[in-house]
Simulated scan of single mutants.
Amino acid sequence: MAGEASAVVDDKGWLYHPYFPDHWKRCPLYSLAQWVNGLAFRNIQFSDSGLPVIKIAEIKGGISGQTKFTRQTFDDAVRVRYGDLLFSWSGQPETSIDAFWWRGPEGWLNQHIFRVTPTEGIDPVFFYYLLRYLKPNFVGIARNKQTTGLGHITKRDLENLEAAYPRLPEQRAIAHILGSLDDKIELNRQMAQTLESIARAIFKSWFVDFDPVKAKMEGKQPEGMSEEIAALFPDRLVDSELEMIPEGWDIATMQDLGTIKGGATPSTKNP
């Protein structure tokens, strides 16, 4: 789905009235879920162990060396558990304001993020895709308030933003189809990542560590390499101004191997 302007535009503008099928029931987005904001943690509350504080950095990149921890206990409403639906409502509009599933360990929710619990009759997965569908609207609303690179979505915005939903069986059908597509996309991403890692490992073996040359120096067939490819590698390493390199190879700069040209800023003057 993609955000579109409503055929009827009132004083609130298209940002607050996205397109939905005619048979869907319309209501304020805010009324479809419980929205619990995170806490504004202070440095004195952090410790070297305990539960992680979940910020946008953790939502997007997981737990890291930059993650803060706390041993204190807070209201259970801001406890984040695996599978919770989170909505980041403040930050750089295009990259931070969005809906996410939390796939990490249990932790505490930081401010500027809502823990979202859909109301009865709203399928959680459908609601996640509803929020993703509304991202262009969120971005546009946040841009209108953007200061120093940051924008935000307020409770008032959620109350003014029109949403819609079909009957529960249709919600679940939509969630199933979109969820299956997302699963395939994630699988393809993981496969591409694996292939990229394999390609990097092969490049390092062949052209940094010179494993095929070293194998031939020992009278062995290079592992995993056809005879035709192996024949392209010499069987000897020789001294160079940098280090030992395959015999017959040369040392050169990128400039020696081709022409490098930078881009230019188009002129704003009339021709």
Score class of each variant (00 low, 15 high):
48 D>P: 04
152 H>F: 13
71 R>N: 15
72 Q>F: 14
165 Y>E: 09
244 M>G: 01
220 K>T: 02
127 F>Y: 14
184 K>N: 14
34 Q>T: 14
8 V>K: 13
101 W>G: 00
75 D>E: 12
18 P>Y: 08
64 S>P: 07
83 G>R: 03
99 A>M: 04
268 T>W: 12
113 I>E: 07
48 D>C: 05
139 V>C: 02
192 A>Q: 14
174 I>G: 03
65 G>T: 06
8 V>D: 14
247 E>H: 09
102 W>M: 02
206 W>Y: 14
28 P>W: 09
166 P>C: 11
260 I>V: 13
38 G>C: 10
56 I>M: 08
170 E>H: 08
89 W>T: 05
113 I>T: 04
231 A>V: 00
46 F>R: 01
211 D>I: 06
157 D>R: 04
145 K>H: 05
13 G>N: 08
191 M>I: 15
82 Y>L: 10
150 L>N: 04
113 I>S: 00
56 I>D: 01
39 L>E: 11
67 T>E: 08
264 A>M: 11
126 F>G: 06
3 G>D: 06
45 Q>Y: 07
29 L>V: 07
164 A>P: 02
115 R>I: 01
232 L>M: 11
151 G>C: 03
247 E>R: 11
88 S>F: 01
62 G>P: 03
240 S>H: 10
144 N>L: 12
121 G>E: 01
270 N>W: 13
245 I>G: 09
137 N>F: 03
9 V>W: 09
178 L>T: 05
226 S>W: 08
189 R>N: 15
240 S>V: 00
43 N>R: 08
125 V>R: 13
188 N>H: 15
239 D>Y: 07
86 L>W: 01
186 E>S: 15
256 D>F: 03
115 R>S: 06
